[in-house]
């Protein structure tokens, strides 16, 4: 397979399946034609434009779809945002479990308060996500069993098994690990392996969740109810993000040495990059979730008006 053909296939894979079913073949022909007659620089422009087109196709699915299908599309986007948000949040939790941060939180009101609000909002986000997911999962499970839908059953059963397997592997790695102070590089390699496996598991679980949303026949009222959950979840995510930003800025102002000179970041790196990267990821995930929730709410309002 040529490099162009590979690029076309990769870009096409970014588009939603329904979109590909309708436009995939002719779009692949167009991309092949454009790439064949473009300079190297122009090819990059073509591929970049095709990639942004894929994002648009996800955010603006075809209008011919039923309203609940369009809400499902937004819900899938929100699920992806939530997974990324959770990973970034776990990174923040891991970074701040060290003692110096607890001391700073107890010494400075703003740091302590923002930290508390962040944790409360994170718990609230978890509760909202759970409350929204349980009725959906129950409905899908009943449908999968009644209709002997092996595709749905596999997507329901495999994610928990993958998470359990990952936890088991992580535990084994920790048990087999030599003393970290004696072999710091080995320790870092182990953490990287666990994180890479975790990313694969997170990606797989997200794919299963989004795939279920597209494949299962969900009651309309259940899909409509998800819009309220998406809005509530976005509010919680925004609260976490604002608290995270406040926490970092307050730490920088009130406890400069800990913020600037400390090596309390992830992998014992300096604190600012760990916090900044986390804040950027949290902000991006919150914005994506907000866009998805707004789109879903607009769909619901449009259906109500019609």
């Amino acid at each position: 397979m040529t490099r162009d053909a590979l690029a076309v296939r990769a870009v096409l894979g970014l588009y939603p399946r329904r979109w590909r079913d309708r436009y995939g073949e002719e779009y692949a022909a167009l991309l092949a034609d454009l790439l064949a007659c473009s300079s190297r620089r122009a090819r990059l422009r073509v591929l970049a434009n095709a990639t942004t087109g894929a994002a648009d196709a996800h955010f603006r699915p075809p209008g011919g779809m039923p309203m609940t299908d369009r809400i499902r599309g937004s819900l899938g986007v929100a699920v992806c945002a939530l997974v990324v948000f959770t990973i970034a949040g776990a990174g923040f939790q891991k970074m701040t479990e060290d003692q110096p941060f607890h001391v700073a939180a107890s010494q400075h009101v703003v740091i302590g308060l923002s930290f508390s609000i962040l944790r409360a909002a994170a718990v609230a986000a978890g509760v909202v996500a759970l409350a929204a997911a349980v009725p959906l999962l129950w409905s899908v499970l009943r449908q999968a069993i009644a209709g002997r839908r092996l595709d749905l059953l596999a997507r329901l059963v495999l994610p928990p098994l993958a998470i359990l397997a990952w936890l088991r592997i992580a535990k084994l790695i920790v048990m087999m690990s030599p003393r970290p102070e004696a072999h710091p590089m080995v320790n870092i390699a182990e953490v990287l392996i666990v994180m890479a496996l975790g990313a694969v598991v997170a990606g797989f679980c997200t794919w299963c969740a989004v795939s279920i949303l597209h494949r299962a026949e969900l009651p309309d009222r259940l899909v409509r109810a998800q819009v309220i959950a998406m809005i509530a979840l976005t509010v919680c995510m925004a609260a976490v993000t604002v608290s995270d930003l406040t926490w970092g800025l307050a730490l920088r102002l009130l406890d400069g040495p800990l913020f600037n000179n400390g090596t309390e970041g992830l992998f014992a790196t300096s604190t600012p990059p760990s916090w900044a990267i986390g804040a950027v990821v949290l902000s991006a995930a919150t914005i994506v979730a907000a866009v998805a929730a707004t789109r879903a709410a607009r769909e619901l309002r449009g259906a109500g008006a019609a």
Partner: peptide, 30 residues
């Protein structure tokens, strides 16, 4: 210079609204 993503974003919407219509494909090109 209209990029492929922009073009098909427009084609998708125009077709949905009945402002254009697809003809039978000719060697993958519709």
């Amino acid at each position: 210079q209209m990029g492929p993503g922009t073009l098909y974003g427009a084609i998708t919407r125009l077709e949905e609204r009945g402002l254009i219509e697809a003809l039978p494909a000719e060697q993958r090109r519709r």
